[in-house]
Amino acid sequence: MKHSELIAEAKHLSGWQRHKFLLLVGLTIVTALFLVTVAMSLYSSSGTAQLDLSRPGYKSVRGQAPERSDFDAFPSDGPIDKDTFDSFRKIYNSRTQKAAKIDGFSGDVLDEKLLLNDGVPQQQ
């Protein structure tokens, strides 16, 4: 097809037909932006962001993150007998003792003294 014929054909196209590729690109970008916004909102609101140790602020502790799972689930079927109790007791006590050893989130570290050195501020 000659160049002149292409120009003649293009003259018969509507505005939508002439710019549909640009519109396709534009709509794709808008859709991608919308989906990224939804994903980021979910990432933030679900609390996942706070557990994501790959974020830059958590670089210093990243290597200390625990393994995802270090024991198998207790079998949910089978008989209830002495062996069942002994086996459950052993695993349960070890897990709860491990949890009890961790002193989690005591308030002392955020004491006012952190800022004021010598006690509570005087109220005006």
Binding site: Q50, L51, L53, Y58, V61, Q64, A65, P66, R68, S69, F71, D72, A73, F74, F88, I91, Y92, R95, T96, K98, A99, I102, G104, F105
Partner: peptide, 20 residues
């Protein structure tokens, strides 16, 4: 360090509930 503690404790507590 709190983020690490949250991850550690969270996994521990969750495993007690779901696996035991």
């Amino acid at each position: 360090s709190d983020a690490l503690l949250r991850v550690t404790l969270g996994q521990l507590y969750e495993s007690i509930a779901t696996k035991l």
